[in-house]
């Protein structure tokens, strides 16, 4: 709008009129946003309602209708009775497999990433930049490329088909990102802090424990959320490097959905899918506010 046109409309549009216009626009905005939110929530809604219906009701009722009679039978079956192939133990054992896999893999890759980032940011060695560049390069290698060499390596190490093997794979492929996160956070910590600590007599690990780690909570949260989501949701490595007994929940979910005996139990599939997604959701809810804060955290003043 030109200045001329703007000043022409101003006197005629009284104060009350422009206020009404502003409120109208605001409500339109809310309406659009609510619409988008509903659209995004639709699949979750269908999943939750379907999981609470009986098979009979699913067959006869509408997809988006609320359940007439709420039943948790499907959840119970998904947890401990659904069949993956010939076994009918539900997702429970696989859920624990995923926990046993994800917790150490997240902890180890976060810790090593922190040490790596600390070294690259504050203990520059010859070739440090090249080392960092190669680590970054590792972030962008498609996982499919490494499946065969990694299978061979796991075989040589005797870790093929074990959870320890999967932990190792996830640690290695997580290091690129965890190092990047910590390095970018630590370069904002002034070099003089390290120098002061050296004069005080602190060594490499003392400085890391006493000065860097206490400053790191925001970036630890970011890294943990990122790594947990990646590792928990991973399907490709899980399906490639595990065998019966060590499969993570994503693989089990796939097997449950794909092994049909007669009737397709949508309610069980939905319940199993929600169970599989719950932990990452919980991590976000608990630590989410640190996530944004950590991503945007710039300098550490003090």
């Amino acid at each position: 709008m030109t200045d001329q046109a703007f000043s022409d409309t101003l006197p005629r549009a009284g104060a009350g009129q422009s206020r009404a216009l502003r409120i109208g626009l605001r409500w339109t905005l809310y309406a659009v946003l609510i619409l988008f939110a509903l659209f995004y929530l639709m699949p979750l809604f269908v999943m939750v309602t379907t999981s609470l219906k009986s098979l009979e009701e699913i067959r006869t009722g509408s997809l988006v209708a609320l359940p007439r009679a709420v039943t948790f039978d499907a959840w119970a079956k998904a947890w401990s009775g659904a069949c993956t192939g010939i076994q009918c133990e539900g997702v429970r054992p696989y859920f624990w497999n995923s926990v046993v896999l994800a917790v150490p893999a997240v902890a180890i890759s976060t810790f090593i990433g922190a040490v790596n980032g600390y070294i690259i940011a504050h203990w520059q060695f010859r070739g440090a930049n090249l080392f960092f560049a190669l680590l970054l390069f590792g972030c962008f290698i498609p996982f499919q490329v490494v499946l065969l060499p990694m299978a061979r390596l796991l075989g040589i190490l005797g870790l093929a088909g074990t959870i320890q093997g999967l932990i190792m794979v996830h640690v290695i492929y997580g290091l690129g990102f965890t190092t990047l996160f910590f390095r970018n956070y630590y370069v904002t910590i002034p070099q003089e802090l390290v120098r002061a600590a050296k004069i005080d007599g602190a060594g490499f690990f003392r400085i890391f424990w006493s000065i860097f780690l206490p400053l790191s909570l925001p970036i630890i949260v970011v890294t943990v959320i990122w790594q947990f989501t990646q590792i928990w949701n991973d399907f490709l490595f899980g399906v490639s490097f595990s065998q019966a007994g060590s499969q993570p929940i994503t693989v089990a979910l796939n097997n449950i959905v794909n092994s049909t005996t007669g009737v397709k139990e949508y309610n069980v599939d939905m319940a199993a899918a929600i169970i599989a997604a719950l932990p990452t959701l919980l991590v976000y809810i608990i630590a989410g506010k640190y996530f944004i804060r950590g991503l945007t955290a710039g300098s550490v003043k003090g």
Binding site: R195, A197, S210, P214, L215, V300
Partner: peptide, 13 residues
Amino acid sequence: AMVFQSYALYPTM
């Protein structure tokens, strides 16, 4: 002992 320009105090202590 050394005193630095930015003081370099340990921020969490």
